[in-house]
């Protein structure tokens, strides 16, 4: 096979040894996944889930305790230098060389990777245009806004034309506008064929960008699939909310309908005793909505509101871990 996966992680473990009074920390406990070339892959999980450690192991900056990692077919432990030629990382902390200008940050990165002069100059120009940082070419990185620094780091990462681009929580600390711009930028890169692996604890980000994602907690993968399949994996697969004024309770009859997996009454703030707010977890199969409506009609109720929603990744996460994403 000429095309090996962009990234293979097999049974990765990492235990940070005990240090003084601090006990040993099992940050990653047997993680496996692989990412195909051209894929946009996400690691979603709360802070402390082991995402950054996993990324550190992939990028050769953290020594794995066990397991194997191949970047474009190259073992990162056995051949770290070769692996580094094939990957690039945009770290969580802004680590731009503060003594160089933006342009030099890019050209020196090119030098480190042995790019010939003409090529690194041309590539720096092209990336600065693409990432809209040309006007800052002669500025020092620390004078730039967070969003700008982020773009310089992405340009820097792309200088040596890596097979895999890894981003560690790239939008943490960015304002909403900068975050949106970064999303568009990443989508653009992905369309151009760059393999992207991203860690995040933002549901919306994972949902919007990633083709597949692994939900990670306590150093393990809880589930791994496309965002749509993850949402479909919830019991029922859809959420039906309805509000009605009714002379008799609707809940018992609705709960007994075929296709309703779970049901609950929601609090109603109006204090109107005849008003019923219900949430049904349903298999949105054939005729379900008709059956629900006929129950409502035959009870002589007036329907105020009805909505059928797809569940969000947040619901998936809560379902898997029994808790909210802790910030």
């Amino acid at each position: 096979m000429s095309t090996s996966p962009a990234l293979v992680v097999e049974n990765l473990t990492k235990t940070y040894p005990a240090k003084g009074k601090a006990p040993a920390v099992e940050a990653v406990r047997g993680l496996s996944f692989s990412v195909e070339a051209g894929e946009f892959f996400g690691l979603l999980g709360p802070n402390g889930a082991g995402k950054s450690t996993t990324l550190g192991c992939i990028t050769t900056l953290v020594r794995p305790t066990g397991g194997r990692i191949l970047v474009a077919g190259v073992d990162v432990v056995a051949q770290p230098i070769e692996a580094r030629r094939r990957l690039a990382v945009v770290p969580q902390t802004r680590n731009l060389d503060r003594d160089l200008t933006v342009r030099e940050v890019l050209t020196y990165h090119g030098r480190y990777f042995g790019l010939p002069a003409a090529e690194r100059e041309a590539r720096a120009d092209r990336l600065m245009t693409e990432l809209q940082i040309t006007e800052k070419a002669t500025s020092k990185p620390l004078t730039l806004s967070g969003g700008m620094q982020q773009r310089v780091m992405i340009a820097r990462a792309l200088m040596h034309d890596p097979r895999v681009l890894l981003l560690d929580e790239p939008t943490t600390g960015l304002d909403p506008q900068a975050r949106r711009q970064l999303w568009e930028l990443l989508q653009g890169l992905h369309k151009r064929g760059v393999t992207i692996i991203l860690t995040t604890h933002y549901m919306e980000e994972a949902d919007r960008l990633c083709q597949r994602l692994a939900i990670v907690d306590h150093g393990r993968i809880l589930t791994l699939d496309t965002p749509d399949n993850l949402k479909k994996s919830l019991p029922g697969g859809a959420i039906l909310d309805l509000v009605a004024r009714t002379p008799q309770p609707l809940l018992p009859t609705l709960a007994a309908l075929a296709g309703v997996v779970r049901s609950e009454r929601l609090e109603d703030a109006s204090g109107d005793a005849t008003k019923e707010r219900l949430r049904l977890f349903v298999d949105a199969g054939d005729g379900l909505l008709d059956r629900v409506l006929s129950v409502v009609k035959s009870a002589g109720a007036d329907l105020d509101h009805v909505s059928l929603m797809a569940p969000s990744l947040e619901d998936v996460y809560i379902h898997l871990t029994g808790k909210d994403l802790r910030e």
């Binding site: 990028t59 050769t60 900056l61 770290p80 230098i81 070769e82 580094r84 030629r85 690039a88 990382v89 770290p91 902390t93 802004r94 680590n95 731009l96 060389d97 503060r98 990165h109 480190y112 990777f113 042995g114 820097r156």
Partner: peptide
């Protein structure tokens, strides 16, 4: 600065050099 909070050293460590 290299080993401080911003870990500028990582840029060097990620270069193709031991």
């Amino acid at each position: 600065t290299d080993l401080g909070g911003s870990r500028e050293v990582d840029e060097r460590l990620l270069a193709p050099i031991s």
